[in-house]
Design a binder for these strands. Sequence first.
DNA 1: ATACATGCAAAAATTTTGCGACTCT
DNA 2: AGAGTCGCAAAATTTTTGCATGTAT
Lengths: 143, 143
Amino acid sequence: MLYEECISGGLKMTVQRRIIADCLDEADDHPDVDAIYRRAVEKDSSVSIATVYRTIGIFEKAGLIQPIDIVDSNKRYEVKRERHDHLVDVETGQIHEFKSPSIENLVREIALEMGFDVSDFQLQVYGSKVGGKECPCYRIKVY
Amino acid sequence: MLYEECISGGLKMTVQRRIIADCLDEADDHPDVDAIYRRAVEKDSSVSIATVYRTIGIFEKAGLIQPIDIVDSNKRYEVKRERHDHLVDVETGQIHEFKSPSIENLVREIALEMGFDVSDFQLQVYGSKVGGKECPCYRIKVY
DNA sequence: ATACATGCAAAAATTTTGCGACTCT
DNA sequence: AGAGTCGCAAAATTTTTGCATGTAT
């Protein structure tokens, strides 16, 4: 739980931070700041958007959450876990997570050839269901 | 040249679009909207920020330029060429480009296993020079 | 000629901040 | 008690838009 991570990370835990941490823990999607704010307000209507921004900034700096950049979307967040990547269904906008040690190894290998140690990397894949019918109305992005 | 791409793409070419296209063509870095705007104004001080936004939107929708999301940075743009990835030196902020057919194949393979055809993907790698000394002052992001 | 692009300035959307009050530890 | 956090509202940023005018085809 993010909440415990915060405490062991030495963060002062206020009710607001607890609420925001809970929202992030409970999210099975990848909410943006506004979505987190709306969910937090449901739990306690007094939570302010300023606190959400400040708290997300603190969680991020502490390495407890991870920002995700998806084309045609605001910046989203997820609780940091094992590193993994994202496959965006361009028909529906749905985001699928996946892991691939081979990609990870390959990335590190290539970076090393360039003389770099990898501290992190992010991979966003955009695609559509094999054999799926076209549905431009929901399409996020066509390349 | 992006300029010619625009014409063959059937876009009405105004002097402003020409200027913005030139700025993008000439950029060897990865400018954000404001940087593009400032460079465009140098060529013709009457170019407005609204036109820069509108033009970038049009170029992007036409598939002529590519947005790049780098942590702790505004959205950046580059002229679309062969697909390639970005390695960000977290000490200096410098962005190196690289290509890797093996990563590309691997990504397509994994997506296919998940039942998806890949239309595009983006990979941003963050790292620091092997053996390089620490210099937190310029560090973009520490994970 | 006319459909579309532009600049301007206002508006909308997003993010940050100063400050007095409040609350964890 | 004291350092740090919160809500609020103002400010700063970033992005979009309406409209009268201008321009490429």
